[in-house]
Write a protein that binds this DNA or RNA. Sequence first.
DNA 1: GTAATTGCAAATACTTTGCCACGTA
DNA 2: TACGTGGCAAAGTATTTGCAATTAC
Lengths: 142, 142
Amino acid sequence: MSTLLQQTIDRCRAAGLRRTKALEELIHTLLENGRPMTLSELAASPRLRNQCDKATVFRLLQRLAGHGLVRRLGLHERAAYFTLLVPGKHSDYLICTGCGSIEAVNAPCPVHDLEDEIRRKTGFRNLYHELEFFGTCPECAV
Amino acid sequence: MSTLLQQTIDRCRAAGLRRTKALEELIHTLLENGRPMTLSELAASPRLRNQCDKATVFRLLQRLAGHGLVRRLGLHERAAYFTLLVPGKHSDYLICTGCGSIEAVNAPCPVHDLEDEIRRKTGFRNLYHELEFFGTCPECAV
DNA sequence: GTAATTGCAAATACTTTGCCACGTA
DNA sequence: TACGTGGCAAAGTATTTGCAATTAC
């Protein structure tokens, strides 16, 4: 994992970002949590809490998103969620509308073919998709 | 379509909502546009502009969502999108990240089986999904 | 040394609520 | 008549920006 951390930071450097403490800790936090997180969550997380301002986290995420290293997700809540994009890896999510928990679905994504078809038929570029399942988890169903 | 309008209003009545002008025009607007819309768009649309306050539209949408007649979507923008739920009908969307246009994908949704599998394996209740494709439309690609 | 990055505070954007008036059932 | 609904205005929450100071390269 620290390899992945290093690789990701390298990708940031390659994109022209400066290697700052805040950047490292942000990437590290996203990696170790392995799920989409909100700006507030990130800014309040252990690694970033005493490291930098929320505005800094915001601007970092914005820059990273601009370079395709991070993606901003909708996920129904009022706050936006951000997820680290790891090359060759794609995740769909299962979200509980009761407690808000988010977990990655570990099953092959069934959308690939349709995505190709849409790309072909509509001429859209840079196509990608987001798939989320919403429901009430067993805990919340009680 | 006016039949669908009538049916939808009937469903609202059955859910206990009062039949007000604002409700009718809101449903009508959502139906005739046939795509998810934001609160601001709705409040500013021809049928509602001179009909009622934005707060009213907000509360109507909230009530409708509570009764499962409307669903709130993420869709990446800062503002939330709302879509009318028509029984037996499901839509996936294709969104241009350049101009923000949203259209329904008219192809069978490939997620059904995975949804069943998740329902079975995780015990989630009231499961549903959202699938969106994002990309740059031919217009914006120039 | 220079341009990117950061902190702090202020400005926006969108959503949500309070309260009293009004209209539907 | 009674209770759901609506208007207006104010409050709340999350995001975004300005600017001077700082830091990476």
